[in-house]
Design a protein around this nucleic acid. Structure first.
Length: 421
RNA sequence: GGAGACGUCGCAUAGUCCGGUCGAGUGCACCACCCUGCUAAGGUGGAGACCCCGUUAAGGGGUCCGAGGGUUCAAAUCCCUCCGUCUCCGCCA
């Protein structure tokens, strides 16, 4: 939810943001009206309630023989109060609906437009050049007995897979390397629940336009999370936290589940787009004044990961229309995937400013002693998908794959993944 | 799964039987000031969250006793539903 005060003070800023996102601009005027209606209704109700409270004291203090008459008088008042209260509640609901559907106000500099209007900030690293025909990760996975897609499909259906032997070890190595990186940077590791309540899922902003992406267990009213961001954002819901001594930084380790609805036919080969994968996610709770600096910090950590793994990548500043509703800015780091001749997203980091925290009611106490929402940021530090770029980038002519040095300690010193005989 | 107890403003509790004098007492912790060579103790006062009105002031008003409904002129208090915690029994690992 955006700051309602912003609607009163600078509605044009909100309009421009909605415009850049290719979202409804009229919504802003609806919201202003809903805000005014709500406040008028509350004021009317509260005036009546104050009258009722005062009258109640009179009734309580009155001598017995006068009570009956006073009670009769109070009945009408009670009916009026009830009606006014209902009206106020209705206005409140409508306000929440309308204002809640306005997306986060983008940060200055975010490119306007849709999915293809991103801006490339930089390209880093040498794209690998092969003097042989490179194999794609599926072929390498089979050859090295690292990925078993056929059996994944047999057991669970399309977009499922087994990581086997060295494939399983490689994923764990990557995840543990990422975890150590996060630990070195002062993050507290959390292993998070992957089933969450509706209010938490709603609070993070995932139940909007992409609700059909999410697995839902109707019998239990629980959602399976597509990222530990959901649980990490809910971790401090309804709390007043202390970020005066610096941000609270968490690294969430979890399995992620995505329905991938509407992606039929896209990335059907391999483990680029799957229903279940592992991810290590960074999450920061911070004073809103420091949010943009923290965003750069998260991005730098992500780039450091890819660099140390010898992957070529580019960084893009996602266009406004392609941001989630909670994000005010999002950077994606995309690795070069040789056999696709394309950059593919490996990480994403979003600055949600106070939008997510306002919905989840995570606040901090400013210097004045007043509470206000904190800013939240999130960013990927490793996922299963990285195996695609790792295998393809570091492959050799015979199908073996060189293990990047930083991962070797996590693989008992293994330097090369050899093709089994 | 069965039986019972409980859920109060940071923590611990009083109040609930018998509805109004309870938006709520007490202790600890907290903040300010005072007092006392230091420390400890003591004294006085203050202090919650959210919302509305108000110049983003002074001040005023409203809501909040696990959540949501209901009864009533009036609910922490009575009734219903749900959630959670604890204890015992059963079952499973």
């Amino acid at each position: 939810m955006i700051d309602p005060q912003l609607l009163r003070d600078d509605p044009d800023l909100v309009r421009r943001s909605q415009q850049a996102r290719q979202a409804s601009v009229e919504l802003v005027d609806d919201a202003i009206a809903a805000d005014a209606d709500r406040r008028a209704a509350i004021t009317a109700f509260e005036a009546l309630r104050a009258e009722q409270n005062a009258f109640g004291k009179t009734v309580a203090a009155a001598p017995k023989d006068e009570k009956a008459a006073l009670v009769a008088q109070a009945q009408q008042l009670a009916a009026d109060v009830k009606a006014a209260q209902a009206e106020a509640a209705e206005a409140e609901v409508r306000f929440e609906q309308v204002v809640g559907s306005i997306q986060n106000v983008i940060i200055d500099g975010v490119p306007a437009g849709g999915e293809d209007d991103f801006v490339t900030l930089r390209e880093v690293g040498e794209k690998p050049v092969f003097d042989f025909a490179p194999r794609d990760h599926v072929e390498l996975g089979e050859l090295l007995r690292a990925i078993d897609i056929e059996r994944g499909v047999k057991v669970s259906g399309s977009r499922f897979y087994f990581l086997t032997g060295v494939g399983a070890r490689l994923e764990l190595a990557l995840m543990n390397y990422a975890l150590d990186t996060a630990l070195d940077a002062g993050f507290t590791p959390l292993i998070t629940p992957t089933l969450v309540k509706p209010e938490i899922m709603r609070g993070t902003g995932f139940l909007g336009a992409h609700a059909d992406e999410i697995y839902y267990l109707a019998d239990d009213e629980l959602y399976l999370t597509g990222t530990s961001e959901v649980a990490l954002a809910g971790y401090h819901a309804d709390e007043i936290i202390d970020v005066s001594a610096g941000p609270l930084r968490y690294a969430g380790w979890s399995t992620c589940y995505r329905r991938e609805a509407g992606s039929y036919g896209r990335d059907t080969r391999g483990i680029i787009r799957v229903h279940q994968f592992q991810k290590l996610e960074m999450f920061s709770y911070i004073d809103p004044a420091d949010a943009e600096a923290e965003h750069e910090r998260l991005l730098a950590m992500q780039e450091g990961m890819l660099q140390s793994l010898g992957l070529a990548y580019r960084v893009i500043d996602t266009a406004a229309g392609d941001l989630g509703s909670s994000a005010a800015r999002k950077f994606d780091v995309e690795a070069w995937v040789p056999t696709q001749g394309a950059y593919r997203e490996l990480t994403s980091t979003s600055n949600c400013t106070t939008y997510q925290a306002r919905r989840l009611e995570t606040r901090h106490r400013g210097e004045s002693g007043k509470t206000s929402p904190v800013a939240t940021l999130n960013g990927t530090l490793a996922t299963t998908r990285w195996l695609v770029a790792l295998l393809e980038t570091h492959q050799q002519a015979d199908g073996s794959v060189v293990v990047p040095e930083v991962l070797r300690p996590y693989l008992r010193g293994l330097e090369t993944i050899e093709v089994p005989s």
